[in-house]
């Protein structure tokens, strides 16, 4: 494991923990897109189908369990928690799941490395992760007013993607036969989706003003 991969995993971990702690502590999910969180829960569920079958390392198994546990906990909080669910901005969070799910499923059925159930599900999870942030970005764009924690959540997720690209570049030059076109192209698209958000995030940080996205 190289430093970029580890730093990427840590920012990914930090992003979900920031979100979970925010919801748990202030008992509010205002500004958080349930659609995006449900898509992430599905991403982890379909990607880690073989979690108890294929063993990579203790680190991998623990991280997978944390990602599964935290993503389903966040969804549970927003949908079921007596207090938290009242703060959910249902009328603003209108992005349709199917609009993202269907193209990803079709693409996974057509473009994959092996036509098996496990492999197609894994590929589907890669495609879906690339676009799962869209409902959250639309919600931020709509409400414009972004609290610090939601801003940090999206920033940390974007940082995780950027670090993973550095990790692939590093692995490409240090490992033999390390070519994963599907992961790379989906990963680059995913990182590009954050570019616009990053621009406004750094602007607000530079001018030390509250983060606000243009309408």
């Amino acid at each position: 494991m190289n430093i970029f991969r580890l730093a990427g995993d840590m920012t990914h971990l930090a992003s979900v923990l920031v979100l979970l702690l925010k919801i748990h502590t202030i008992k509010s999910c205002s500004g958080v897109s349930l659609k995006t969180q449900e898509l992430y829960a599905l991403v982890f569920a379909t990607r880690y189908l073989d979690i108890f079958v294929t063993y990579v390392s203790f680190y991998n198994t623990v991280m997978k369990l944390i990602f599964l546990g935290s993503s389903f906990s966040i969804v549970w909080y927003i949908r079921r928690h007596r207090v938290v669910r009242r703060s959910y901005d249902k009328d603003q969070d209108t992005f349709r799941h199917l609009f993202l799910l269907l193209p990803c499923l079709v693409l996974a059925l057509v473009i994959n490395e092996k036509f098996t159930f496990k492999e197609v599900m894994w590929t589907f999870s890669i495609y879906l992760e690339a676009v799962a942030i869209l409902p959250q970005l639309v919600l931020l764009q709509r409400t414009r007013n972004i609290d610090n924690l939601t801003g940090q959540y999206v920033f940390l997720l974007g940082a995780y993607r950027a670090l993973y690209i550095l990790n692939w570049i590093y692995r490409y030059f240090t490992e033999e036969h390390y070519v994963h076109w599907i992961t790379w192209i989906a990963g680059i698209i995913q990182t590009l989706l954050y570019a616009d958000f990053f621009y406004y995030y750094f602007q607000s940080w530079k001018n030390s003003v509250k983060l606000e996205l243009p309408a």
């Binding site: 995993d9 991280m63 997978k64 092996k114 492999e119 990790n167």
Partner: peptide, 10 residues
């Protein structure tokens, strides 16, 4: 490895 096979990333 190809695809999820031998894939060690999260």
């Amino acid at each position: 490895g190809s695809g999820s096979m031998g894939h060690d990333e999260l």
